[in-house]
Design a protein around this nucleic acid. Structure first.
Lengths: 152, 152
DNA sequence: TTTCAAACGGAAGAATCTTCGAATACTGTC
DNA sequence: GACAGTATTCGAAGATTCTTCCGTTTGAAA
């Protein structure tokens, strides 16, 4: 099964305003409310729509600082990777963790109050991660833009 | 004005399931429906809650590949940065753009169908960005985890 | 043209939201 | 401790929205 233009329009709208009423959504995509509702349910059931979430303001919540951390492990054995990933996933300040090709093994996206707070996170969590050979942190001075909306 | 424990619980829930009914949310945080509703409205009005969005499945939508692109500009003049940022913000496949401290000037998060598709994005958009002195792309082999939920 | 399956629209009951007034809990002052 | 003033709570009810049902339309294949 695949997506037609109407499905894509629905997804584009929901990626921007996930709490739009079904009536308004149906109008935005030129469908009746019932037909629109059926399509949304199908998109949810088929897994195209993973979740609906609230996006919070990082400044207001006092975590305006983003840091990217490149990590090289001491080995490539599965046990080393698994142990590392398991430990990383428990750190609440780490929002993303990617296994990378190239020099570094992992790239982490971390949020913090400020540099001091990142020092705490580093000391409390990052420095204790298992199997780490090298770690390099890069601070974002400013987030130019950021979206969760995939190209559809 | 600041957040008490109930506010934080509300935010934690909404970050996970942004479409929870107010009745269920009020139960989850031990409030009456009306009191809960008032708090959510305040959190929205005060800007703690930015948006409600649907998160889509990148695999299902055929953009399973994430690439991080480090870019160094040829100069640091405001006009150079502004022109660069303006041009980057028009590329639909770029989900994030951060101005960085350290060696590279910018870090971009890009999604693509596969490596060939990234080559297209590179040729069509990235290679044409103004003021670029150097560019290095790092492919993610696998996204270990990813969340939009800030620590609250 | 006929048939069939898929998708559609409109209507109605069920669920939910949103707002109101009255009651309760907190806070600072005397 | 008593008091006043403010902020926050609760429960109820009207307004809105969701969800399902059923008859109709559409489009593709025989």
């Amino acid at each position: 099964m695949s997506l037609d233009q109407t499905d894509r329009r629905i997804l584009r709208v929901l990626q921007k305003t996930g709490r739009i009423s079904n009536a308004d959504l149906s109008e935005a995509v030129n469908l009746s409310a019932s037909a629109c509702h059926r399509r949304v349910q199908r998109l949810e059931a088929d897994g195209y729509i993973r979740d609906y979430v609230a996006l919070l303001d990082a400044r207001k919540l006092n975590v305006p600082t983003t840091v990217f951390v490149e990590i090289t492990l001491s080995g490539q054995a599965d046990e080393v990777l698994d142990a590392f990933e398991k430990a990383v996933s428990r750190i609440p300040d780490v929002l993303e963790c990617h296994l990378m090709a190239g020099t570094a093994d992992y790239l982490l996206k971390v949020v913090a109050e400020n540099t001091d707070d990142f020092a705490r996170i580093h000391r409390q969590y990052l420095a204790r991660l298992p199997g780490v050979a090298q770690m390099q942190s890069s601070f974002a001075l400013r987030t130019v833009f950021k979206t969760t909306a995939l190209p559809v």
